[in-house]
Amino acid sequence: MTEVDARGLSCPMPVIKTKNALESIEEGEIVVIIDDATARDNVLRLAKSKGCTISEERKGDAFYLTLTKSR
C-alpha cells in the first residue's frame, strides 16, 4: 500500500503528492497522513474528483485518509 506522509506540508503540496501517488497505481489503496485541516479538505476534493472511495480516521492531530482507486 502506498503511503503519502504530508504532515508538516501546507497547500498545495499535499494535494500534488496525493495526485502523483494516485496516478502511480492502477487500482488499490493509498493512505494520506495529513495534519493541516485546509490541506485535508483539498485532498478530499481531489479524491472525490478522481472518483475514489474515502475513509477517514483521526489519530491525535493527524488525519489518516484511505483513498481507494478502482478501475
Partner: peptide
C-alpha cells in the same frame, strides 16, 4: 482545478 483541491497556500 478548484474542484480538484489544487489551491495555493
Amino acid at each position: 482545478f478548484a474542484n480538484m483541491g489544487l489551491v495555493p497556500g
